[in-house]
Every structure is written in structure tokens, then in C-alpha cells.
Design a protein around this nucleic acid. Structure first.
Length: 409
DNA sequence: AAAGTGAACAACCGCAAAAGT
DNA sequence: AACTTTTGCGGTTGTTCACTT
């Protein structure tokens, strides 16, 4: 319990990561996947603890990270999600594909808090400062993590009256949830989330969710309590539901993958979360939109079952099968960005790597490009590297470092 | 030009819980 | 069932850089 044992070992480096360390970690994970994090530093030849490696990967090296500044839409979404979830950054991050909890947390503490105060809003309670009688830094009621049944508690809005928010949102949003009306998506994104959270609040009792994001009701979904993923249905559903009702083919793939044993621990990146806009857009079905996530889980569990034995190189496994890259979800994500007014600099690794940085919202072409990349035996699309490696000045110093590493790979 | 300041970002720490033995 | 190991999360601190004085 507590601090990881590897942290006690001597001579472990701390502080900022060097490009060489990044390279080692990236190479290792690209080749073998992370498997058991505690064994990663040893296998990758790093003088770091596994925890540090994990953090570095999640917050910095992961290829599906979206870099660049937050858009206004994203900020607004964060504020509204925070009003519902409190400081549950990982859950907030799950709704912002390509963003990490750390990133969002930093943004909140350094920027959004200040903005809200300037607007006369208490960032903790989301009420006017005048109503909070100087309790600026007090923890709001919905952040009481230690209280029992916290799942339901934290879902309650700061005002304590979630119903005041939800009912009027529900009718138009229901059609969004059902995917039958994709035209009003942009304007209602934030409302959509509030509704979804509220829906979770209502439906969570029968599901015994493990966290507040496990609310997703099985509407329009394939989740069945009797299915094989019921080893941890809330978790499984939490991580996959948004994708499940996106695409029948995807659903099929995921179901098959989920049928593999031990979809349990949350080793799966929450970055698979899709904005509603992306979700709806994908209702048009993207052929070849494979779900890697469930396969990822099963694969991870298989490797983690070998804990202590290190990671066996899986030379036959593609990068996808190694649960590292999750390109396909980036297709709808990209569309989501476009619909949400994503900024040009909000480019993604997949786009760099595929050399398919789109200049317009031509999703079909994009989809074809990405599908092509996927179909090519799931190989890491190194061919596309040259095109995105060329203008590093466009993407900052970090880009140069990573690009160097990828070049070498 | 140098020092001070604040914003933004990166990383660490401690804890809780899940998973494994 | 008890204990250990591993993972994930949130709070906090440290670092870097740009801007101001």
C-alpha cells in the first residue's frame, strides 16, 4: 500500500524527463506496450519508477494527446463539468478527448479559477461570490469524497437542485442521445453532458456504479447484465458505452472483445471518451472503425496476469493489439473538434503520423485515409512521418523531441 | 541588462482501491 | 481472509518562460 516499492530504490532519477528518457520510454511502449508499469523502467532501461513512467506516458508521450491551448468551448465544458463533478479531474478529462486530467487540473487552478472569480463566481461552488460569504477556498459539499454514497452526492449540482437543470434539457437531448437528430449538436453540447450526468444520477441506483461516470444508462446500447462483461459492468460500460452506441460494427467488435475474460481493472485509457458531437457524427457509421479499447483491456489483463514476469515481447502483435495506439477514435474526434470550433493548432498525433492533417472538415476523405492506415495490417504508419516531421517549428519544442524519437523508431 | 513576478506546465507525493498471491 | 503489489487519482510543489519594473 501507499508509495510504490520501486520508489524506495536508490538512484532513481527525478525531475524533468530528458529527451533520451522519453525516447527510451516511447520506444519501449511502442514495441511492447506498457504491461506492468512497475517493470517498464527496468525493461526500458530507465532510472525511474514505474509510476513516473506511467505519468510521463499518460500526460506527455501518449500519441492521442491533443496539444495546444484549450478552446473556449473546452473551457466552458470544463466549468460545467466541474460544477457537476467537482474536482474529479479524471472524469472531466474523460469528456475531453486528448486532454489529460493533469492538464485540465492545471488549467483550472491557473486560469479558470481566476476567470470565474473575475466574473464574480465562486469557482468551488459555482455560485455568485456574494452568496458564498467569503468561502472562496472552501470545499463545496459535492466534493466531500469521504462521505458514504459519494457517487450520488457528487452528482448533485452545487445548487442542490439538479432537476432544475435537467428536465428542460431532456426532451431535445433525448433525440441527441438516440442519435436521431444530429443537427442541434453543437449548441447543446454542454447541456448534453449535464443531461447525461443527470441521467446517471437517476439510473445509477440499479447499477451500483463504481464512480460517478458509471451512470450511463443502457439506452440504445448493447450492454446486458448477463453478458460476459458483467464482471465489472459499470466500469466496462463507462469506458465503452459512448462508443458502443456509435456504430453497430464497432459494437460488434467490442462485444467480441469484451467477451474475452477479465475486462476489469481500469487499465484502459479514458481518452476514448467522445464528445457528443463526435458520437453523433459517427452514427453515420465509419466502416472499419475498429474498437481497440476492449481488445486493449483483454490484452492488458493477459499481460498483467503475468505480473512479475515482465513483459514478453509480442512480436506478432501490432501496435494496435499492443493497446498503445487508438487511432480510430480520432476520426470522430476530429469531427467533434470541427463542430466545436476546434482551433487549427489542435492537431493530433494521428494526423501528424498519418500525414493527413486536414484543412477542411472533409470527414469522408479523412475517414478513408485513416481506415487505410488501419487496414494496412495495423502497422504503425511510419510512412506518414516525413510529412509531419518537417515543420517542427509549428508545434513547439516538445514536438521536436518527440519527432526525433519517432524518427528513430 | 538584471531582478522580480506571475502564468503555464511538468512532475512528485500520498492515499485509496483494485488486483494478485 | 489476510497481506502485498500495482494502479489511478487528486493535491501540491517545482520548473521554465515571458513579461514588467
Amino acid at each position: 500500500m501507499g508509495r510504490h516499492s520501486c520508489c524506495y530504490k536508490q538512484k532513481l532519477r527525478k525531475g524533468l524527463w530528458s529527451p533520451e528518457e522519453d525516447e527510451k520510454l516511447l520506444k519501449h511502449i511502442t514495441k511492447y506496450g506498457h504491461g506492468c508499469w512497475s517493470s517498464v523502467p527496468k525493461l526500458a532501461g530507465l532510472q525511474r519508477c514505474g509510476k513516473s513512467c506511467r505519468l510521463r506516458w499518460i500526460n506527455y508521450l501518449r500519441p492521442d494527446l491533443k496539444r495546444g491551448s484549450f478552446s473556449q468551448q473546452e473551457e466552458d465544458l470544463i466549468i460545467e463539468l466541474h460544477a457537476v463533478l467537482g474536482n474529479r479531474w479524471s472524469q472531466i478529462a474523460a469528456q475531453l478527448p486528448g486532454r489529460t486530467d493533469n492538464e485540465i487540473k492545471n488549467l483550472w487552478n491557473s486560469c479558470i479559477k481566476k476567470k470565474l472569480r473575475q466574473r464574480g463566481i465562486d469557482p468551488n461552488t459555482h455560485k455568485p461570490l456574494s452568496e458564498t460569504e467569503g468561502g472562496e477556498d472552501k470545499v463545496p459539499a459535492n466534493e466531500d469524497k469521504t462521505a458514504g454514497s459519494s457517487e450520488l452526492k457528487l452528482l448533485a449540482p452545487p445548487s442542490g437542485n439538479l432537476n432544475s437543470v435537467v428536465p428542460e434539457l431532456a426532451p431535445p437531448l433525448m433525440s441527441m442521445v438516440d442519435g436521431s437528430n444530429s443537427e442541434n449538436l453543437v449548441a447543446s453540447t454542454k447541456d448534453f453532458f449535464l443531461y447525461r450526468f443527470a441521467a446517471g444520477h437517476e439510473s445509477s441506483s440499479g447499477c451500483q456504479p463504481t464512480n460517478s461516470m458509471d451512470y450511463l444508462p443502457p439506452r440504445n446500447s448493447v450492454y446486458s447484465p448477463s453478458s460476459s462483461m458483467d464482471q465489472n459492468p459499470p466500469l466496462w460500460f463507462n469506458q465503452n458505452a459512448r462508443l458502443l452506441d456509435m456504430n453497430p460494427e464497432l459494437t460488434c467488435n467490442m462485444m467480441m472483445s469484451a467477451a474475452l475474460p477479465s475486462v476489469s481493472r481500469s487499465t484502459v485509457s479514458t481518452s476514448m471518451g467522445l464528445k457528443p458531437t463526435a458520437r453523433m457524427a459517427a452514427d453515420n457509421s465509419l466502416p472499419g472503425f475498429h474498437c481497440l479499447e476492449a481488445g486493449n483491456s483483454s490484452n492488458n489483463s493477459a499481460s498483467s496476469g503475468n505480473s512479475g514476469g515482465g513483459i514478453e515481447p509480442q512480436s506478432n502483435n501490432s501496435i494496435y493489439e499492443s493497446s498503445i495506439f487508438q487511432w480510430p477514435e480520432l476520426v470522430p474526434n476530429r469531427q467533434a473538434e470541427i463542430q466545436l470550433g476546434g482551433e487549427p493548432e489542435d492537431l493530433k498525433w494521428s494526423e501528424y503520423l498519418n500525414g493527413t492533417i486536414p484543412l477542411s472538415a472533409d470527414i469522408q476523405n479523412q475517414t478513408q485515409l485513416l481506415n487505410g492506415a488501419v487496414k494496412e495490417e495495423n502497422q504503425f504508419p511510419i510512412d506518414g512521418l516525413s510529412s509531419w516531421l518537417q515543420p517542427p517549428e509549428l508545434f513547439g519544442k516538445d514536438f521536436q523531441r518527440i519527432s526525433t524519437v519517432f524518427k528513430q523508431i
